[in-house]
Simulated scan of single mutants.
Amino acid sequence: MTTDPAGSAHGADHGENHAVYVYGIVPADVEPEARATGIGDPPKEITVVRFGEIGALVSDVPDRPLGTPQDLTAHSELLDGSAAVAPVLPLRFGAVMSDAQAVERELLQPNHDEFRAALHELEGKAQFVVKGRYVEQAILREVLDENAEAARLREQIRSAPEEVTRDARMALGEIIYRSIADKRAADTRLAVDVLASVRPAVGERPPTHDQDAVHLAVLVDLSQRGELEEALAGLTEQWNGRIRLGLLGPMAAYDFVMKREPEG
Rank of each mutant, 00 (worst) to 15 (best):
E204K: 09
H18G: 03
A100L: 06
V198E: 02
E33G: 14
E104R: 15
P62A: 05
F93C: 09
A36Q: 13
S197H: 03
E142R: 14
L195Q: 02
D13V: 11
G40W: 11
V49H: 13
E104I: 04
A160F: 15
D193R: 13
A186K: 13
L172Y: 10
E261D: 02
A148I: 10
R158Y: 06
R244W: 01
A181T: 11
E162H: 08
V130R: 08
H10C: 03
A34I: 14
E53F: 05
R50W: 01
V129C: 06
S179W: 03
A233T: 14
R166E: 07
L228A: 06
L222R: 15
K131V: 13
G81Y: 06
H14W: 13
V61Y: 00
E142K: 15
I243Q: 07
K125L: 10
P206Q: 09
A74R: 09
D4A: 08
T47W: 04
V96S: 04
T236H: 12
L153T: 10
G38V: 04
K44A: 12
T188I: 05
T208A: 15
D113R: 12
D41S: 10
D13H: 11
R260Y: 03
M97G: 00
A150W: 10
P5G: 02
H18S: 12
A171P: 01
R133Y: 07
P207F: 05
A196G: 02
V49L: 10
A171L: 08
V88E: 05
G264N: 14
R35I: 11
G7W: 04
A86H: 06
D145M: 11
A6D: 12
P206W: 05
A34W: 14
A231E: 07
P110N: 04
P206H: 05
A9R: 15
Y23L: 05
P5S: 00
A168E: 12
